[in-house]
């Protein structure tokens, strides 16, 4: 029984069957990659997991509870954090504030009227956020405007914002999309480091096979909205079904 169990999920957009009978099981403390050609339904699946879309049928269980019908913030409070394709951060706020906000969300829940004390007086939150910045090597950028960070640093900051909440499951939507090779390698190193340091389950949607094979322990191949195969990386390489799905798209 995995921490995330997707069973028989269907999703139609008009005449397009975006997801057809998707079953997926993500085991605790593993890195599970979901790959597939463009239009395979990877992003649709992810959006069904975080409450952005509601599947037409099927069930999505996380940690023994259904996530269906819950709002994104409720799903996050259950322990799922999400990294977006383009880093979603609070670009008008400072780096440290960006990390403090998830700390508050973790400690105080979805809403708390906290209007009298200053932010600085919340010593434990400040400490937690500073420790996180230290962990991702951004302590020297503490007071910078998050919007003025480089793209790689924005990604790093977004990861920090997710990790500081100590999520049970971290969802990554193409974390290296559009990155230069060096940045991609940095991101891989960062993710490996995260994996080694903490007990965390990750589900990665990714195009870049280099990233997938450097990180993943299990791989699910999605094509035309249906999972073709779920295997270890060694067995995926050169698998005829995968070749077929990716024909001409990438070298596997």
């Amino acid at each position: 029984m995995g921490i995330l169990e997707v069973k028989g999920v269907n999703k139609r957009f008009g005449g397009l069957q975006a997801l057809g009978d998707v079953n997926l099981s993500v085991k605790e403390n593993t890195v599970h990659a979901i790959i597939g050609p463009n239009g395979a339904g990877k992003s649709t699946l992810l959006n069904c997991l975080v409450g952005k879309l509601i599947p037409d049928s099927g069930s999505v269980m996380f940690d023994g509870q259904s996530v269906l019908g819950r709002k994104p913030h409720e799903i996050n409070q259950m322990g799922i954090s999400r990294v977006f394709q383009t880093p979603e951060i609070f670009s008008d706020l400072s780096v440290i504030e960006n990390v403090m906000i998830p700390c508050f969300a973790k400690r105080d829940g979805a809403f708390r009227m906290h209007a009298i004390e200053t932010v600085e007086s919340e010593k434990d939150i400040v400490e937690m956020a500073e420790q996180m910045l230290l962990d991702v090597n951004m302590q020297d950028k503490r007071n910078m405007h998050a919007g003025s960070l480089s793209r790689g640093d924005k990604r790093r900051l977004e990861m920090a914002m997710c990790l500081v909440q100590n999520p049970k499951l971290l969802l990554l939507d193409e974390p290296t999309a559009g990155m230069a090779r060096a940045d991609t390698n940095n991101t891989i190193d960062l993710l490996k480091e995260i994996k080694d340091k903490r007990d965390i389950t990750m589900a990665i949607i990714e195009h870049d096979m280099h990233v997938v094979f450097s990180l993943a322990e299990r791989i699910t191949v999605l094509a035309q909205g249906t999972p073709l195969i779920e295997e270890t990386p060694e067995n995926i390489k050169g698998h005829p079904k995968v070749r077929e799905a990716y024909l001409g798209e990438a070298q596997v």
Binding site: K71, P72, E97, I101, F104, A110, H114
Partner: peptide, 18 residues
């Protein structure tokens, strides 16, 4: 700070559990 977060990026805010 949360109010400024609303202005800055409401999507990120919701996916942060707020």
């Amino acid at each position: 700070m949360m109010l400024r977060a609303v202005k800055s990026n409401q999507q990120r805010m919701n996916y942060t559990g707020l």
